[in-house]
């Protein structure tokens, strides 16, 4: 079993929907330890991605869809999330190259490249209360699931669940990067909004694969 460009398109559509639904919640998380615009920014970026999807030719590869979504997010999100998610999808696009069917190994490579792109751009490590705290456990879980012979849908589900757990685990942390780092210990007890949006996007990927 493998996933094709339709899955990427559906992943982006599911992401847009879930980010719109959680716009207020992400805004609240961000107001607690940041500048409060994360929900609004993510929603605006993915609304723009939806328009871009309509312009994508039917024969586009998964890599092309990822690349166009990446460019749209970089231009429209504003704030740190634009370059971070944009770079993630751009590196994911590079990782799958011109493949038309993505098997389990390709899915893991895609997720790993996305995470590496975020680390490269944001220079954050695990434990610094950022989206990396959701991405890295997700990549590790995806890799284990692939090793255990799971299908692409099963791999994505494992990644989403580990990503959610990772986002939740940012709550007791002190932030070391971004605006929240100015708060010191006051950031303790609040979930990182970037880790939360990552978990939502990973769940969108799994949901899109379930129907594929």
């Amino acid at each position: 079993m493998s996933l094709d460009a339709t899955w990427v398109v559906e992943w982006m559509r599911h992401s847009a929907r879930v980010l719109a639904e959680n716009r207020a919640e992400l805004g609240t998380l961000d107001r607690e330890i940041g500048d409060g615009d994360h929900g609004e920014n993510m929603d605006r970026g993915f609304i723009a991605v939806l328009s871009e999807l309509d312009a994508i030719p039917d024969d586009a590869t998964p890599g092309e869809v990822l690349r166009r979504a990446a460019m749209t997010l970089i231009s429209t999100i504003g704030g740190a999330a634009g370059p971070l998610y944009g770079t993630a999808l751009l590196k994911a696009s590079d990782a799958v190259g011109s493949e038309t069917q993505l098997d389990g190994a390709s899915i893991v490579a895609l997720l790993r490249a996305a995470r590496d792109g975020i680390v490269l751009r944001g220079k954050a490590e695990v434990g610094e209360k950022t989206m990396v705290d959701s991405w890295t456990p997700a990549v590790d879980a995806a890799s284990s699931a692939e090793g255990a012979g799971e299908s692409p849908a099963g791999i994505l589900r494992a990644a989403a669940e580990a990503g959610s757990a990772g986002a939740e685990a940012t709550e007791p942390l002190i932030a070391r990067k971004g605006r929240a780092s100015y708060l010191g210990e006051r950031a303790i007890g609040h979930r990182d909004p970037g880790a939360q949006s990552t978990a939502l996007i990973l769940h969108a990927a799994a949901d899109a694969a379930r129907n594929a």
């Binding site: 970089i74 704030g79 740190a80 634009g82 370059p83 944009g86 751009r121 944001g122 971004g178 605006r179």
Partner: peptide
């Protein structure tokens, strides 16, 4: 100025 400005500039 602040962090995300550096991220945007680097991108």
């Amino acid at each position: 100025d602040l962090g995300s400005a550096i991220l945007i500039a680097a991108t």
